[in-house]
Amino acid sequence: MREDRAVTAATRSPPASGPAAPVLLPGTSVARKQLVAITGVVGVLYVLVHMLGNLHAFQGPRQLNHYGEYLRTIGEPLLPRSMLLWIARIVLLTAVTIHIGLTAQLALRSRAARPVRYVHPGVVQASYASRTMRWGGLALLGFIVFHLMDLSWGVHPHFVRGDVYHNAVTGFRRWPVTAVYLAAMAALGLHLYHGTWSVFQTLGVNRPRWDRAIHRGALTLALIVGLGFSTVPVAVLVHLVK
């Protein structure tokens, strides 16, 4: 028998739980998921702005290149040139790092949580989008690297620094590149569909009476972003944009 047992034991706090796995950021799995959700929101806002910006391509080379230049000059002369762009890049990079880092950590945790797999796997209702968040996310990461190399860092064969329009048009003329872009946009759409609904669920904003609306909203957002991004490469390929 334990000697330290107090008669008024009832007032003691519950015992501490077992040792937790080493963490990138402290907190419960739920808190970490909530950080993934918040950083996901940053990503969603970014892709939305990016997609809308891309649509300048339909206004012709002058407008698109002007928009590209405008992004560098926002805030001038109060802020130095490209300052805001760099701030955005840093915020985005941080968000993406946390998003991926925590997800990787949670994914490892989930792997450890089921050391023996099922002989006969089965799925009852899970959507394709929800089941492919990790691999789809990883594919998107690969795509982002490709995309940056292709259109930002100039690995592209006809790259002309500063001529966004030219780079895009010459790039998308090569159908394999367009195919990669379109596949990536499908992946992005799936990721956004489950991700956006998940944000509401994980942050606890979701309510039963809003659930359907949030699902529809997430689907709409995913379609707008995915299709919106896809219009430019497709338009280039079919020579609508030259």
Binding site: S29, V30, R32, K33, L106, R109, S110, A112, A113, R114, V123, V124, Q125, A126, S127, S130, R131, M133, H194, W197, S198, Q201, T202
Partner: peptide, 8 residues
Amino acid sequence: GHCTNIGE
């Protein structure tokens, strides 16, 4: 593991 909102 943690929840990924899959709903199974």
